[in-house]
């Protein structure tokens, strides 16, 4: 099973290494990890997706909480949170395929951010399934390059995960 957790960490050098090291040492499986600034320059926020049953999730949360630089760890239950991921996809595109690709882009409310004679770059945001789906559909044209951010997520409603 997949679980998404939000981790607020001190914005200090080496913190990412500590977290990555913890996952490898304890044999936890990371599916995706994204890091970025928060509203407070002292803290960063990580969104981590891990594989495992309930016991593994509990250990992941407890072990992360033990790190001195980790301020807060919170599970984001899928039913109660919104999740987004961004992908940029470079596909082969010539005069013939271009309009068909644009149709797909429209259906997914994605964007074209670069065009050349032989290729296009598409920017798509959405949850993991949506990104998987658009990639699947674009595959027929030839995906030349793909970059995904990994997931970011937030609890719906007034509850907040903050330092």
């Amino acid at each position: 099973m997949k679980h998404t957790i939000a981790v607020i960490v001190e914005n200090k050098s080496g913190v990412l290494t500590r977290i990555a090291g913890l996952f490898s040492r304890r044999s936890f499986n990371i599916d995706s990890l994204s890091v970025g600034a928060t509203d407070n320059p002292d803290y960063s926020r990580m969104t981590i997706t891990v594989q495992g049953d309930k016991d593994v999730l509990e250990q992941v949360i407890k072990q992360l909480s033990k790190l001195i630089n980790v301020i807060r760890v919170s599970e984001l239950a899928p039913a109660e949170s919104v999740e987004r991921e961004l992908a940029v996809i470079k596909v082969s595109a010539d005069r013939e395929s271009r309009s068909e690709i644009m149709q797909i882009v429209n259906i997914f409310r994605a964007k074209i951010i670069d065009v050349s004679a032989k290729s296009m770059i598409i920017e798509a945001t959405g949850d993991e399934e949506k990104i998987d789906a658009i990639i699947q559909l674009l595959r027929q044209f030839g995906i030349k390059e793909l970059a995904r951010t990994g997931k970011v997520a937030m609890v719906r409603g007034p509850r907040v995960v903050k330092a």
Binding site: D55, E58, Q59, K62, Q63, S65, K66
Partner: peptide, 8 residues
């Protein structure tokens, strides 16, 4: 004292 030991 270490919550991570409980249930490990």
């Amino acid at each position: 004292v270490d919550p991570a030991e409980i249930g490990k």
